[in-house]
């Protein structure tokens, strides 16, 4: 099973996409906690793209494809922004006392926490981020 979504680089697309993922989860029989994890990771990945990937103010499309086979969900996010590899980021030190922790950097940490596997590649000036999670 496979589904494709195309969204614009606008932050208010995120809740709309989340709604569509929830519908998809119901029809594919994805358990709710897994669905929430998918939405969490998607939001982190997509908001990073929207905030940091574009050097112009033009409209861009972000492609999201989701497939399910052998109980594994694979999500591929494709954008035409500048090179950005979230897997290369240093994880925030969550052992620091609460007050001293930097406020940023949590998004990528959450993505790593919620997904089983994250892969990045750059092809033809596009970023491809692959997220995998077992159902």
């Amino acid at each position: 099973m496979e589904e494709n979504f195309i969204i614009a680089n606008k932050i208010d697309e995120i809740p709309v996409l989340a709604g569509k993922i929830e519908e998809l989860a119901t029809s594919w029989g994805i358990p709710l906690p897994v669905c929430m994890n998918i939405n969490l990771a998607l939001e982190e990945a997509i908001s990073n793209i929207i905030f940091y990937a574009y050097t112009d103010k033009e409209k861009h499309s972000i492609n999201i494809s989701i497939s399910l086979s052998n109980n594994q969900i694979v999500i591929i996010i494709e954008d035409d922004g500048i090179l950005f590899d979230p897997t290369s980021f240093k994880q925030p030190d969550i052992n620091l006392p609460a007050e001293e922790r930097p406020i940023g950097g949590l998004g990528i940490f959450l993505m790593i926490k919620t997904m089983d596997e994250i892969l990045y590649s750059r092809k033809h000036d596009n970023n491809y981020l692959t997220l995998k999670i077992q159902m």
Binding site: M36, E43, E99, R101, G104, L106, G107, F109
Partner: peptide, 16 residues
């Protein structure tokens, strides 16, 4: 029913 890192950021910012 849903909290993301952006939400956590707001919570931590206001806590600080």
């Amino acid at each position: 029913d849903y909290l993301s890192s952006a939400g956590i950021r707001s919570l931590v910012t206001q806590y600080k």
